Simulated assay, not measured.
Amino acid sequence: MPIDQHGDAVLDGLSIRALPKVSLHDHLDGALRPATIIELADAAGIDVPETDADDLADWFAEKSDSGSLVEYLKTFDLTTAVMQTREGLTRVAREFVEDLAADGVIYGEVRWAPEQHLAGGLSLDEVVEAVQEGIEEGEDAAESSGRDIRVGQLITAMRHTERSLEIARLAVDWRERGAVGFDIAGPEDGFPPSKHRAAFDYLASEFFPTTVHAGEAAGLDSIRSALIDGRALRLGHGVRLAQDLEVVSRAGEEVLVQFGDLARWVRDREIPLELSPSSNLQTGAIEAWGTLMEDHPFDLLYQLGFAVTVNVDNRLQSRTSLTRELALLAEVFEYGLDDLETFQLNAAAGAFLPVEEREELIELIADGFER
């Protein structure tokens, strides 16, 4: 299914880009416009590998396609470097929201780690305030162009540092001012959620929702820790949960699968999986199954009834959009509009919003797909 010059694709005669969508797993420092990076870097005296926006986009895509999460994460050294001032953070956040709205997203959650943006002398509160200002500017800009979008912050702690409890308190402090949830990110293997149990205990005591990166660069133990130690209401990626599924037999299109206890728990409790197909290929998250999109266990998980959602992870590094991810899946697995609608309804149901607002979001999606 070709993506046109406007980043759109057509399914069953309808524009995928125009369909109402929900984005749950989208990193702020992985969504910068290449031209913005060049401008902010020039103002800050930071060297960039390419001074042309298209060439810089190519550089990010090439460096990110390594098959290793550790190598993939190195590209963020440049993006975070230009996000150390209030002006830079606000601009990046504003453009983040504008780009989501242009892609048909009506609700999004942006995850980012405040502790990575203090080199310019700002405090934790000041960087969160700067990002919130940009989000609100982006929402206003979208509204003025005829698009409605709401974006909430997922305040994130880096799992290889020792600041998770401090960041958890920061998230709770901002819960009425834009923060909707908490996450841990960074190198997963060797840094399980259990190392941050104090932060998760505090968040649980405050009834503050968490999503945890798990099952991307590490396996079932990481997912188990996310659920038990992190009290995760969603799994960031969670793709390696498929390792807890054993295909016993195949007869034509009929597949008999044996569930492990962990997989059955996640499926039966409808814990959303924040799957990011292109990113999962780039980081080697699906290497146990193959290296092509058709090898991704997305369809297996979907057909078995897991609450799968579709996400971009990092739009810049994967040179993608939510429209593109949906188009890729539709082409590879022959999905129709009903399937794409299911993915959006799953995401809406898993959004960190009050139930009344989730129900409203579900109605907007249903109405949009019906039209």
Score class of each variant (00 low, 15 high):
residue 2 P to N: 14
residue 4 D to N: 15
residue 5 Q to K: 04
residue 5 Q to W: 00
residue 8 D to K: 07
residue 9 A to N: 04
residue 10 V to M: 13
residue 10 V to N: 13
residue 19 L to I: 02
residue 26 D to I: 07
residue 27 H to M: 09
residue 28 L to F: 05
residue 29 D to V: 10
residue 31 A to T: 05
residue 32 L to E: 02
residue 32 L to T: 01
residue 34 P to R: 13
residue 36 T to K: 12
residue 36 T to D: 13
residue 38 I to V: 03
residue 38 I to L: 14
residue 44 A to W: 01
residue 46 I to R: 08
residue 49 P to N: 08
residue 50 E to P: 04
residue 50 E to G: 12
residue 51 T to R: 15
residue 52 D to I: 01
residue 52 D to W: 06
residue 53 A to R: 14
residue 55 D to L: 15
residue 57 A to H: 13
residue 60 F to Q: 12
residue 62 E to H: 14
residue 70 V to N: 09
residue 74 K to E: 14
residue 79 T to Q: 13
residue 82 V to N: 10
residue 87 E to V: 07
residue 90 T to G: 13
residue 90 T to R: 05
residue 97 V to G: 11
residue 99 D to T: 08
residue 103 D to L: 05
residue 105 V to E: 05
residue 111 R to T: 05
residue 113 A to C: 07
residue 116 Q to F: 08
residue 118 L to D: 11
residue 119 A to H: 11
residue 120 G to V: 02
residue 122 L to A: 12
residue 122 L to K: 13
residue 126 E to W: 02
residue 127 V to R: 01
residue 129 E to A: 15
residue 129 E to N: 14
residue 132 Q to F: 01
residue 141 A to N: 11
residue 146 G to W: 00
residue 146 G to T: 06
residue 148 D to P: 01
residue 149 I to Q: 02
residue 149 I to A: 03
residue 151 V to G: 03
residue 152 G to P: 14
residue 153 Q to M: 14
residue 157 A to F: 02
residue 157 A to P: 07
residue 158 M to G: 07
residue 158 M to N: 09
residue 161 T to M: 08
residue 162 E to G: 11
residue 165 L to N: 00
residue 166 E to H: 04
residue 167 I to E: 06
residue 172 V to H: 02
residue 175 R to A: 09
residue 176 E to D: 15
residue 177 R to C: 00
residue 182 F to A: 07
residue 182 F to V: 05
residue 183 D to I: 07
residue 186 G to S: 10
residue 187 P to C: 06
residue 193 P to L: 09
residue 199 A to S: 02
residue 204 A to I: 10
residue 205 S to G: 09
residue 205 S to F: 00
residue 208 F to D: 08
residue 210 T to Q: 12
residue 210 T to D: 03
residue 213 H to R: 10
residue 215 G to Y: 01
residue 216 E to L: 06
residue 220 L to W: 06
residue 221 D to H: 08
residue 222 S to A: 12
residue 222 S to L: 05
residue 222 S to C: 05
residue 224 R to F: 00
residue 228 I to S: 13
residue 236 G to N: 06
residue 239 V to Y: 03
residue 242 A to Y: 10
residue 244 D to K: 10
residue 249 S to M: 03
residue 249 S to T: 10
residue 253 E to M: 11
residue 254 E to C: 08
residue 258 Q to S: 15
residue 260 G to M: 06
residue 261 D to I: 08
residue 261 D to F: 01
residue 263 A to G: 11
residue 263 A to P: 09
residue 267 R to M: 01
residue 268 D to R: 00
residue 269 R to C: 05
residue 269 R to F: 00
residue 273 L to G: 03
residue 276 S to C: 15
residue 280 N to A: 09
residue 282 Q to P: 01
residue 284 G to E: 03
residue 285 A to M: 00
residue 296 H to F: 07
residue 297 P to F: 03
residue 298 F to V: 12
residue 298 F to T: 12
residue 304 L to G: 11
residue 309 T to E: 09
residue 310 V to C: 13
residue 314 N to G: 13
residue 315 R to K: 13
residue 316 L to T: 05
residue 319 R to S: 11
residue 321 S to P: 12
residue 323 T to P: 02
residue 325 E to F: 04
residue 328 L to T: 09
residue 332 V to D: 08
residue 337 L to D: 07
residue 340 L to C: 03
residue 342 T to D: 10
residue 343 F to R: 07
residue 349 A to K: 08
residue 349 A to P: 05
residue 353 L to S: 00
residue 355 V to M: 03
residue 355 V to Y: 09
residue 358 R to L: 03
residue 358 R to F: 04
residue 359 E to V: 08
residue 363 E to H: 04
residue 364 L to I: 03
residue 366 A to C: 07
residue 369 F to G: 11
